[in-house]
Amino acid sequence: MRLRLPSGRTLVLALPFLWLGLFFLAPFLIVAKIALSEGALGIPPYAPLLRWTDEGVLTIVLNLGNLATLVSDSFYIEAYLRSLRVAAISGVLCLLIGYPMAYAIARAPEHRRNLLLMLVVLPFWTSFLLRVMAWIGLLADNGVVNNLLLGLGLVSQPVALLYTDFALYAGIVYCYLPFMVLPLYATLSKLDPVLLEAAADLGARPWRAFLTVTLPLSLPGIIAGFMLVFIPAVGEFVIPELLGGPGAQLIGRVLWTEFFQNRDWPMASALAVVLLLLLVLPIAWFQHVQGKGAR
């Protein structure tokens, strides 16, 4: 009997399927499991879900306490709401800055577009942390902006800029702007300029042609860009930690604190589970839009 080797196709599929199944999908199940277990002293600091009782009976001990705390403690609820709000506002700000940029690049002479796009992406290739650091240098009490204001005599003492919501938004918008510009550029550059000529020919002034033709046709790019900013920003840890004030208790920061400082792994897991549930819809929507774009 001839031995049948698995086809190349199966191998090509199996490698990523198994890897992602093991290291991406399975961990979520574990997170969900731990979110439901009790905290314990020791390593790892949580009690197993399944345990043998003294009578030798296998029992499942589900601890819904963590989840209950999350939905009843206003600290956590506010952290979630604040995260969603900050991420949404950041998405809108990125859109307001990124759309004109993407539009201008898409309308630039063809031989310049690659360079212009490269210039948008270049900061993204340099260190994220060091770019956040630059904003500390700009906004600190003894930073560049305050020096400038003091030097010009506009203020008599430094204005608090760092550790404020302003710094938080500046940092998020700064770091996530390329993620907005790229998908917008992709849809805008695909837009056939003849459609705008047709609109003008039918009596639409430039502004109306933009509103009735360009804007609706770039909607997939707007949605994709917004999601690429919004979803990661909801769980952002570094920027609120380094630029935001003590009030900027976003959920990523709370989760970090629970995990690293309080060593409450079940609580951190519960926070992650709820965060994931909050993001399932936006992620599904994003994938839907992406799938349509690919077709």
Binding site: V31, M227, I231, A268, L275, L279, I283
Partner: peptide
């Protein structure tokens, strides 16, 4: 798009 804290944890 997964928030890093979730992937990491």
């Amino acid at each position: 798009v997964m928030p890093e804290v979730i992937t990491g944890l």
